[in-house]
Design a protein around this nucleic acid. Sequence first.
RNA 1: GGGCUCGUCGUCUAGUACGGAUUAUGACACCGGCCUGCGGAGCCGGAGGUCCUGGGUUCAAAUCCCAGCGGGCCCGCCA
Length: 649
Amino acid sequence: MISENPFDQFRRECQTVLSNALKKTLPEIKTPAITLSKTPNIEYGQLASSLCFELAKKLNQKPLSLAEHLVGAIDKSSFKLIEKVSCAGAGYINFYVNFAKFSALTLESVKQLKFDYGFVKTAKPNKIIVEHTSVNPLHPIHIGQARNPLLGDALARILECRGYKVSRHYYIDDVGRQSSVVAYGYEKLGRPKPTEKADHFVGKIYTVTSCLVEINRLKKARDLAIAVHSADDLVKVNKEIDEWMSIAAELKEKYPVLFESLMAKIGEDQNPEEEINRLNRAYEDGEPKAKQLIREVSDLCLEGFRETMKRVEVTYDSWDWESDFVWSTQVSEVLQKLKTSPFVYSEKGVLEFDAEKVVQVLNLKGKLGLGENHEVSPLTLVRADGTTLYTTRDIAYTLWKFKHAQKVINVIGMEQSLAQLQLKLALYALGYGEYAENFVHFAYNLVTLPGYKMSSRRGHYITFDNVLDEAVQRAYEEVSKRSPQLSEKEKRKIANFVGLGAVRYALVDVDSSKPVIFTWERVLNFETNSAPYVQYTHARACSILRKAAREPEKPAFELLSEKLERELILNLASFPDTFVEAAEYLKPNLIADYANVLADKFNTFYNALPVIKAESQGLSDARITLTQAIQIVMHNALTLIGVVAPEKM
RNA sequence: GGGCUCGUCGUCUAGUACGGAUUAUGACACCGGCCUGCGGAGCCGGAGGUCCUGGGUUCAAAUCCCAGCGGGCCCGCCA
């Protein structure tokens, strides 16, 4: 007898029993939906109902006497998992599980389902596209952006285990001015071969080029301000020039050769700004030379990204080029269709989308959860020169995604909430209400450095690669200190999964709606960080099982009567609940927390109670089975967030 | 100016969707203990709190509502 969700089985029994008692004692009352909550303490049983507090008022009775009545009417004879039901406090009804049976059910279920345990399948195994990472191919991925792939990958793993057909997409944003800036610099340098990791190489070219072009532009603006005698503008421009000059000085010091040669080459052009705009235009128009150039530099950068992502075991099923949607008819088709809707108007030669009107006309305020005073700003769809904007192209991309999936989840920072809302409203405007309802913006909060925001344009960032290197290096020092007897190869291997695990954990374990301030301490302190702790605990469980060196023959589950053991059983039995919640509410941090709690409990158990040398063979067998189950569940939880569960470390 | 979002011991953090129990979760740092026991990257104990503030709803509020305060973000012919 096994169950894919033991705790839920117990809960259902309790619900049925209570609902029956209710019908019997109070037939005149319409039976409410019975929700049971976990008790604050194992002394109060495992599940509790506060139903009597609600009923008391309606019936004008005391909650406690109602509870007594109901408890008296409960017939649990045909249910196997309920040990007893009692009333407590001012009117709670507490349900106690029969641990002998429940332990057997739980442990046998884990053992049989093994690496599938906990992964309760959805009733609707739809296809879901998860778009994540999508860092512009201009510079290396920095630590602020790294929260995205780690959250996205954890979500994808969780949804996949939930039974959805998940496809992971990377949207390559190669259209737009910034791509032309880097391509312009790259071309000026004579399309050099990378002398280091490709994305880092491209990133330097981008930052220096962007800085030089910006200064050039600002100087022209200054001349203009002088010419028209605008003192205000002059002050403003001068301030900006000062800022960029200091950035230039920094860059010149960091990359003297690159800086000098780009400065000389860019200096040859009368108007670099115009060259870049021309390139941008040519790329959107699909001119072969522009295509060749921008794709080449973008590909270089992506090559670096692939390397980084391979290292942390984040994978993608599809790399989608934004430019492909521009070159095909898809973007213009969307525009044509939008133009015929009543939500688009033309102003000073640009095409505007009236998002607020969509909300009004289709009465979406409540459905979208918008506040009373929330007015959605309009969105510019097409520039005066006829080129499109980012969100416009994203509409076409989104429609394409819905040709391949029933649900679309975009892992995108919360700073893009407005654009994502406008995009959703555009789907409504186009008549794709169903798409709009299955379009999810998974918004996460920013990662910042203490004191300032990371800026790729200014070259102020800590790269993800750098963080990974540091983490692995630091882990190596720890391993060498703690396990000097290991071979060099083993040390390296352990340092790798500990370091990478710590980084993944650090960026997934905080609620994604909360901001994270990046400190090295947060990632590298292996005392604070739970990933190495959980990994260590997993290895410890494996070690016991190795030492035991036997399969439990006759586990006496009824002997697992210590409070610690019971808490562990309850934790194991509740893993499916936690998993389902994490999947349905898109909360990967729940999994990280769960793993940590389980590890904590196991360590306490480990210190307090002997497993192999337990008083009797039956108890020892039961504790070995418990340890096996803990090891399996810890492994399953870690896998969901992409952290290695090691047998040794 | 408007909108969105976050605010919980010194620091970091769980709980907030779906209000419940005397005692608000855990970690770091701090104080004091535990290695001749299955892995000490561990365990046990102690101290530390206006759950941002003020109202309201309720038998019951960290959780819901209203009004504020503080930080971050957005309101571009950028992405």
